[in-house]
Design a protein around this nucleic acid. Structure first.
Lengths: 334, 334
DNA sequence: TTGTAAGCGTTATCAC
DNA sequence: GTGATAACGCTTACAA
């Protein structure tokens, strides 16, 4: 029926209808000043030939791709998948395609992905940093080249860049208040890597609240997020003279591992030892003995806000001041 | 230091060095017949200007994008994330970029994503079908236009297309054998939507094995995969005159929901009722009372094999016969 | 209302 | 060894 082989072009349509390519181009995009009859004939033939505009040609011509890059540490964490979801939805509504890249939490890979996106001439980049990224020079370069970059969730310290983040200090304090209410006085805290600004924020909120409760002791350990590191941290906590009756973990994934370790040691969750955490992972609801609470960090909202900001920058809006838009995290008690 | 604003081009480099663009182009790609001195000067300046080839221009010129599309039902399922991982790794090694799209299990959205990929002139498409997709006409069109398509995991029935899939019949039989061994005779089976070929395959394997065990009864129900549908199915099973002592569920996500329902009804998992399932989801190992077994469907291997096949097609290899490469699923007993 | 032609960055062909 | 130039598909100013 329709022809085989290579995709139809505007040129081919023009040839078949004996009009010029400009007429076809205009007719396809409903430009004013094209005869109704011509417009119809063009659109009909285009549909019949299954014409799809060659985005590579358009990007080339226009010097913009209508594509934004989205770099996340990984796809395994629900948090990032939900953020992606939100970003894609909004971007697509505005006619943008999203190019997803994973840094696997490695700065070198992050740079690779970023270079690939630069080659692909994305119009802007959304990024949640790899956990070990300390050098932001790369992003300064991009800024210099006029490529808009917006960070979300895992953002560089300071206020030199554009971004969206979630404030965990207050929710962290609430976590401690909750544990205090439930009568816990000896509390372990397995924090994440110090490179992550959010780690300091957790600590700050937790210590601030703990200071308000005389007699409460917070024992700090940390994990590099790998499961064995978490197990070692948990082991240290259990080895304390006075064993903690509650543990705050960096996130729900860490909590899962720590809880598993405790069970192996013969402890009963929520009887001998209780857990609270961050991320509000949907799976947790399937645990027979689960968390007392988890802190919701609103991935979709962060993704949405970051995309809105980025698209404004991409569309050339001037004078958007650097700095982070801050969402307040929320404690969800089970 | 380096200039600001727009990205450096080959033209700019040529201007600054007083050579022609062709020389620059050749020097950058280490063509033979370019003086060592010239080559060096060009490459140095390119590095200094932070030059990245404009992929949009190259794609346009060459009529190929070195990009492949990858369409999955969603990013929430670990299975698809692992497949993505494998696809990206292999594609990247061969110099290809991967454009990820989600169908959200809706045929309409699947078509949209596919059109977007066609607009973006991907060189080929990898796809795991939406659960309700019944019309493959779309893919016939693509074939007609010479766009290579390779299916994986969720493939169309028959052998008209190229793809990779996992055979579940044998593992399904083994699931039943395992239950028989453990003394179960009354077994519930919550299958997935009949649109999925893999649903029929599970049923076939299960029934075949059951037939070998006189006195064994398999009670079939099904779920549309939404949690409430799973609960209704589980409720039906529990309402049987002779309550099943074991349940086979369509996958681990369904198992989680069914197990939660049973617990709410006061049953103890692995005492009153046991579960086996498909997917071998990593989260399951954190359950206090988990599955007896789950069937591994090798997402990474499927993704890898599918990508290899697709890239061969993309690179123009002729005479690759349609049909599915079949991997054997594996029962993993806990 | 429609046509002509330039131009986007790169590669390839041909010439010198 | 290197340079000039055409071509890829599309948009857009300008011409008719």
């Amino acid at each position: 029926m329709t022809d085989t082989r290579k995709p139809a072009t505007i040129k081919e349509i023009a040839r078949q209808l004996n009009v010029s390519v400009s007429t076809v181009s205009r007719a396809l995009r409903d430009h004013p000043g094209i005869g109704l009859r011509t417009r119809q004939r063009v659109q009909e033939l285009a549909a019949q030939l299954n014409y799809e505009p060659n985005q590579a040609a358009i990007s080339f011509k226009q010097g913009r791709t209508r594509t934004i890059g989205l770099i996340v540490p990984n796809l395994r964490e629900e948090f990032f998948c939900m953020a992606i979801q939100a970003v894609e939805e909004l971007a697509q509504q505005q006619g943008y395609t999203v190019l997803i890249g994973q840094s696997h939490d490695r700065p070198a890979k992050e740079r690779e992905v970023l270079d690939s996106m630069r080659r692909n001439r994305v119009d802007g980049v959304l990024i949640s940093l790899a956990k070990d990224t300390r050098d932001y020079g790369l992003f300064d370069e991009l800024k210099q080249y006029g490529l808009p970059v917006v960070f979300f969730d895992r953002v560089p310290a300071g206020q030199l860049y554009h971004g969206v983040r979630c404030n965990l200090a207050r929710a962290s304090s609430e976590l401690v208040e909750l544990l205090a209410q439930r009568g816990h006085t000896h509390i372990g805290f397995i924090n994440g890597p110090a490179t992550l600004a959010a780690a300091a924020e957790r600590e700050q909120g937790i210590k601030a609240a703990a200071a308000r409760h005389p007699g409460m002791e917070i024992v700090l350990t940390d994990t590099g997020l790998a499961s064995h590191a978490t197990r070692i941290a948990m082991k240290q906590l259990l080895a304390r003279e006075v064993r903690p009756t509650a543990v705050i973990t960096f996130n729900d994934y860490v909590a899962l591992e720590a809880m598993a370790y405790c069970r192996e040691q013969g402890l009963t969750i929520n009887t001998d030892i209780s857990f609270v955490s961050y991320a509000h992972l949907s799976f947790m609801r399937y645990l027979e003995r689960g968390l007392l609470a988890s802190v919701e960090q609103f991935p979709a909202e962060q993704g949405k806000a970051a995309t809105e900001l980025l698209l404004r920058m991409v569309e050339g809006e001037e004078g958007i001041a650097a700095g982070y838009q801050v969402l307040e995290a929320k404690l969800i008690v089970n």
